[in-house]
């Protein structure tokens, strides 16, 4: 088991957002989280990346409890990459600097040493000609791909994607989904919060339907999309499909 979430609880004040979530992700698997707005998808991902402290429960990465309060979160975050809906590139740095910042600071190696690694990533995702561009000189799709490259440059073992195509113009969604397909083919372990039901059905190994902070139903996409067991899942799917 690559990643295991056991009875995770998270609340903001009186608002309980995760109510005992259990989830297991195998190495190389892609798990899609679907569910209505406010069901807790983003919060779950942020807990996995330790951006939010959890109230109860445990998250294990390769058997290591990362939610242990004694655990230093920084090295854990380096092992888990995260990509956001709004790209969140650093606007005062060009694409290459965005990608190099974390590797430079964390490995202590120089730009020159790290540059080949970054260049290889830009080439792999057909962005070699955008390395010197600043975020405001790139399309949304290009920015999101740079954000993915930036996360990959830390050589993460797990990647989290929070609605990474939701802010994009429709014609740019495809290029970002292609990157996700490519990563899946290369064996990356991924968890995606998404509204792209077609994509989830095509690529996911497992789909989880979140409802009011619980995983109400999970299963392989064919089963969950074609023969949902829970009436609420069926209702949600009929609304979005």
């Amino acid at each position: 088991m690559k990643l295991e979430i056991i009875d995770l609880w998270k609340k903001f004040g009186a608002n309980v957002v995760c109510k005992g979530i259990d989830l297991a992700v195998n190495e190389g698997e892609m798990v899609c989280l679907i569910g209505a707005s406010g069901s807790g998808k983003s919060t779950l991902l942020r807990c996995i990346n330790l951006l939010e402290p959890v109230d109860d429960g445990r998250i294990l990465l390769d058997g290591l409890e990362i939610t242990d309060p004694e655990q230093d979160p920084q090295p854990i975050r380096q092992r888990i990459g995260m990509v956001f809906q709004s790209y969140n590139l650093f606007p005062h740095m060009n694409a290459l600097e965005n990608v190099l910042l974390a590797p430079r600071r964390i490995t202590g190696r120089s730009r020159a040493e790290l540059r080949p690694m970054a260049e290889a990533l830009f080439e792999r995702f057909n962005l070699a000609d955008r390395m010197g561009h600043y975020p405001d000189q790139m399309s949304g799709g290009q920015q999101q791909r740079v954000a993915i490259i930036r996360a990959l440059a830390m050589k993460p073992e797990v990647m989290l994607f929070d609605e990474v195509t939701s802010a994009l113009d429709p014609e740019l969604v495809g290029e970002v989904l292609d990157v996700l397909r490519q990563l899946k083919a290369e064996g990356m372990t991924m968890i995606l919060a998404t509204h792209e039901m077609g994509f989830a059905r095509e690529v996911a190994d497992k789909v989880c339907f979140l409802d009011a902070g619980r995983i109400l139903e999970e299963g392989p996409p064919e089963q969950l999309f074609e023969r949902p067991r829970e009436p609420r899942t069926a209702e949600f799917l009929s609304r979005v499909l």
Binding site: R46, L51, R77, Q78, L89, F90, L101, R105, A151
Partner: peptide
């Protein structure tokens, strides 16, 4: 979100 992006990469608070 800029802080979240930086922290999620594993950068320290100081960096």
């Amino acid at each position: 979100s800029q802080r979240a992006a930086a922290v999620s990469l594993g950068l320290s608070h100081g960096d």
